[in-house]
């Protein structure tokens, strides 16, 4: 091959084909969803995220949760996601329209989190688990996120948002462990992860 124009045009066209198929197409077709309003209840799906949850999404990204946790429930025939109770229906593209970045994930060292807000709706549990994962969940190799919490002296009354911890991590007498703003945001984000609502293309419990 000595004809440079042929080589360059070929290099351009082969790559252009995938750019059209895997970039331009999804941009035009999967990147322009609008939320759906339920005619009976007037609820909007997927529901808008609170400001705190949006901040929590950034903490999720900064902490690299995606390297061990996916956020996608595959349909029947692609693994046991539904049978494991990770969601009441498979996730669809519209579910992720408000996510930035999207955390679909490629690794399940830990369980899927697509609906963790529905599966573990207690904020206290989430805080305890983030602080002492292997105590709350024996055998877990999730690292502790205690750097997102503060140990402080109890001034008068114990703070309302103090975390109840189990030994060996329990705060010494006169002290308490409270979440930083980042920890509060992260937990708000985790609790917002609930995609069990119905969509026209994904009715609830479509097993």
């Amino acid at each position: 091959m000595n004809r440079m124009p042929v080589i360059v045009v070929g290099i351009f066209l082969t790559f252009l084909s995938s750019w059209i198929g895997l970039v331009a197409y999804p941009y035009l077709n999967l990147g322009r969803f609008t939320p759906v309003t339920d005619p009976d209840s007037g609820e909007v799906f997927p529901p808008p995220m609170s400001g705190l949850a949006v901040a929590g999404q950034r903490v999720y990204a900064a902490s690299g949760c995606v390297y061990c946790h996916s956020q996608q429930v595959r349909q029947v025939g692609y693994g046991s996601d539904l049978e494991r109770g990770w969601g009441s229906r498979p996730t669809v593209a519209r579910d992720f329209m408000r996510e930035n970045p999207v955390f679909l994930g490629t690794m399940r060292t830990g369980p899927d989190l697509a609906n963790i807000g529905a599966r573990q709706p207690s904020a206290m549990w989430q805080h305890q688990h983030l602080y002492q994962p292997s105590v709350v969940s024996p055998g877990s190799i999730m690292p502790s996120y205690r750097y997102l919490y503060r140990l402080q002296k109890i001034e008068g009354q114990r703070s309302a948002n103090a975390i109840d911890l189990l030994p060996p991590d329990a705060a010494p007498d006169g002290y308490e462990v409270v979440p930083t703003h980042e920890a509060e945001a992260l937990v708000a984000y985790l609790l917002s992860l609930n995609r069990n609502y119905p969509l026209p293309e994904a009715p609830e419990s479509s097993q």
């Binding site: 970039v23 999967l30 990147g31 593209a93 579910d95 992720f96 996510e99 930035n100 999207v102």
Partner: peptide, 17 residues
């Protein structure tokens, strides 16, 4: 994905492309 992020539903495809 980073400078002018598109909607999440489309990001995965661009990410793995």
């Amino acid at each position: 994905l980073n400078f002018q992020p598109i909607q999440g539903g489309a990001q995965g495809a661009v990410n793995w492309w």
